[in-house]
């Protein structure tokens, strides 16, 4: 309070000042409501960017996405470049393992580069997946979609790789790009690049 304002009738607010203060209170109340919403437990969100299309790299994003959904998270997986293969209905059934450049393979690179090697190592991996009762990629996609995970296919790379929107599983979101992915990442608690 200003010192040169004498106490008494002069200290009363004009109707204009009162209206201004009421407007400011309303503004602050809205802000508090927004902040409350932001810290609400129900608004947990995770975004994964999936860029790889080999059999082994299809698993981490799908397993994390479906698990996060079970934890009540709102999940988006943005598939770009070879990550599109995971959502491609036909190609997803035939994802391969790369033998070359993978030091975990039991054969040296020179042999891994021979024709047919990828087919062989992929068959071995699929056998192990079946033996260990690990879910198939299709099963994980369906589970993720059932639990509300938003599986997105990057439009720029759909065009780049000459795919058609109908090539992807039903329920996959198309027509999205880096900006929408970035916006979702901004709002997310967890952001991963796989």
């Amino acid at each position: 309070m200003s010192t040169d304002t004498p106490a008494g009738s002069d200290a009363e607010l004009s109707s204009e000042e009162t209206a201004e203060l009421l407007a400011r209170i309303e503004e602050l109340e809205d802000e508090v409501a927004d902040l409350r919403m932001a810290v609400n437990e129900d608004s947990n969100k995770m975004v994964i960017i999936a860029t790889k299309g080999t059999l082994d790299m299809a698993y981490p994003p799908l397993i994390l996405a479906s698990t996060a959904a079970a934890f009540g998270y709102d999940v988006t997986v943005f598939h770009t470049f070879w990550g599109l293969e995971i959502l491609h209905e036909e190609n997803s059934k035939d994802l391969k393992l790369s033998s070359v450049g993978n030091p975990n393979m039991p054969v040296p690179n020179a042999i891994a580069a021979l024709p047919g090697m990828d087919r062989m190592t992929t068959r071995m991996m699929r056998g192990k997946i079946d033996d260990n009762n690990v879910a198939s990629v299709q099963e994980l996609i369906e589970t993720s979609l059932d639990h509300g995970v938003d599986l997105q296919a990057c439009q720029m790379t759909i065009d780049l790789l000459d795919y058609d929107e109908d090539d992807f599983y039903d329920g996959v979101t198309t027509g999205v790009g880096a900006a929408s992915a970035f916006q979702e990442m901004q709002e997310a608690d967890i952001q991963l690049l796989v």
Partner: peptide, 12 residues
């Protein structure tokens, strides 16, 4: 007979 992550997801 089902493996990670299915037990948690089916539980949910």
């Amino acid at each position: 007979g089902q493996n990670c992550p299915m037990p948690v997801i089916k539980t949910k």
